[in-house]
Every structure is written in C-alpha cells, then in structure tokens.
Amino acid sequence: MDSLLLQVLNGLDKGGAYALIALGLTIIFGTLGVVNFAHGALFMLGAFCTVVLNTLLKSSFQSAEPTGVDFLGRPSFDDILYVNHWFGENVGNFIVDWAVPLSILMAIPVMLIVGYTMERGLIRHFYKRPHADQILVTFGLAIVLQEIIKGYFGANPIPIPAPDAYAGVLDIGTYFGFEPGAVSYPARRFVYFAFSVVVISAVFAFLQFTTFGMVVRAGMADRETVGLLGINIDKRFTTVFGIAAVVAGLAGVMYTPILSPDYHMGMDFLVLSFVVVVVGGMGSLPGAVLAGFLLGILQSFASMNEVKAILPGIDQIIIYLIAVIVILVRPRGLMGRHGVMDT
C-alpha cells in the first residue's frame, strides 16, 4: 500500500510538468488553432532563464585588499559576490539560495516578450495555412532556438541547486498513517507539484473569472461570431499566446532543480506533451491537465518492478501505448468536445 502511494507521488511532479506544457499547447491550439511544435523550446527557454539568473547572481569581483597568502607566498584575493557586497552577507546568501523561485519574477516578463514576438512575427502569418505548415515552421523555430541556446550555454546539462529550505526529504507516509520512513519523498518534487497546481488554478481562474478570459473562451467556441460582435479577437489572442508562453516558461523554471537544463530538454518534453494533449482531447483545457497527471502517474506505476516483471519494457512505452489506444478508440480524447477534431 505504501509503495502504491510512493508511485502516485513519484508521478505527480512529472505529471505536473506534462500538465503545464500541455495546458499551454492546448490554449494555443484551442484559441489560435495553431499546432505549436516550438512549445517545448519555450519550456527550455524558461529553464534557461533560471540558468541566466543563477549565473548573474553568482557574478563576483575581486576584493581590493589581499585577504591572505597563497601557497607560493603571493597575496591572494577573495571573490566577493556582488549581491553580498550590496545587501550584506545574510541577505546576499539568501538571494543566491533562492535563485530558482526568484527566476519566476524574471521569467514572466521574458517569456511574455518572447511569446508576443513569436505570435506577432511568425505565428499570425500561419493562421490560414494548413496544420502541416504550422508544424513545420514551428519545428524549424524550435531547432533555431535550441541551437542558439546551445551556442551560448554549451551542450552539457547545467546543474541548478534547489533552495536549502526544500532540499530535504518529506516523510509523507506519516500523514497517511504509515510507518515513519516508509514513504519518503524529495521535498523539491513536492514543491514542483504544488507549484504546478497553483499555476494551473491561476490560468483557470483567469479564464473563468475575468472579462478577458470570457472573451477568450468565447473565441475558443466560435471565433467568427466574437469578431462579428466588434471585439478585436486577434489582439487578445496575442496576449493568450504570451500567457501560454509564460506557463511553459514557468514550468521550465521550476523544473530546473529536478532536471538539470540542457538544450534538448524541450524536444524531449515536446513529444510527450503532444501525446498528453491528444489523450486529453485537442482543445480541452481540463482534459490536458487530467491527462498530464494521469500519464505521469501511470508512467511511474509502469516503472515498478512488479509491473515490469509481468510486462517487460512497459515503462518505456506506456505513454505511447495509451496514446495509440485513445486515438484509435476515442479520437476526441478523454474530455474533448464532440465534433472538435473528431476524425
């Protein structure tokens, strides 16, 4: 029983990442009708926002006065972090320690600008073109973005430490009445799950409770009529694309302590999140979230030794297998609306 709970927990953080990326993809597909293959690249850009901020915070200068002598007897200098110099030792160390959550503040404007630029500069010219063209041009864009990142940051993964406050292990089992130590779970993964829930709720609240969100939802249902009512839907959709980019970026920012970012992490997640979107139903936001968590949890169940003993290799292919079954049996996905991409 406790091992089952552990598997559910293990699936939650990966499921959170799937759900966030798939949510952004679905928003873009549902509103703009664009299949965005560059969405994984946006996830990666978010992760690299953290890398940039982390490097910036760790930038230092040499002390003016020698602080000691090295082993050759020459005077040696200490490296002093700028943040320590500006804010004092305590605050400085705190800021460096909390670099990952702080990156959220940086990632939001950056990803918003990236999203706006992408929509204005490229995507909007592809609204009327067939899906295949959209896939191809965004695929090209993804390659370009990922090569630029590779050019600046190199091909190796860059480890980013989590804040000390959540570097430890949570003994979740005790909350459910198990033995202490039976179900221990890294705190950073739990933080990621909580974070993804917050972001997802924020997106849903935004769409559900604001006038802007209402217009967007109306636009998802019937774009033409909304336009006929005198609402400039194109302008709103640019913002929607920006929001989707921010969601993907935030997913990337917070995922860095779990997976060291490298230039092809976007492509790795892209394929999976497309599968998630299809399983959830093209254009269905709750479907994307549900399918994200569901597939994350199923994947971690499939990697249990007991399951692998019965069906060898199932952990590698479970997600794709489910996608194939869903597409064949119920093409509109788990929660897709009737008649939307139903063939």
Binding site: V271, F274, I317, A323, I327, L328
Partner: peptide
C-alpha cells in the same frame, strides 16, 4: 485509421515505441 495531426502523432508514437 486517422488522418491529419492524429496520423502524425500515431506514427510518432509507434516509432518512439
């Protein structure tokens, strides 16, 4: 059995498997 993007994803899924 499916066309359009579903076909692309199906073939992708089989190749990945």
């Amino acid at each position: 059995r499916r066309s359009g993007i579903y076909f692309s994803i199906l073939t992708l899924a089989f190749a990945e498997m």
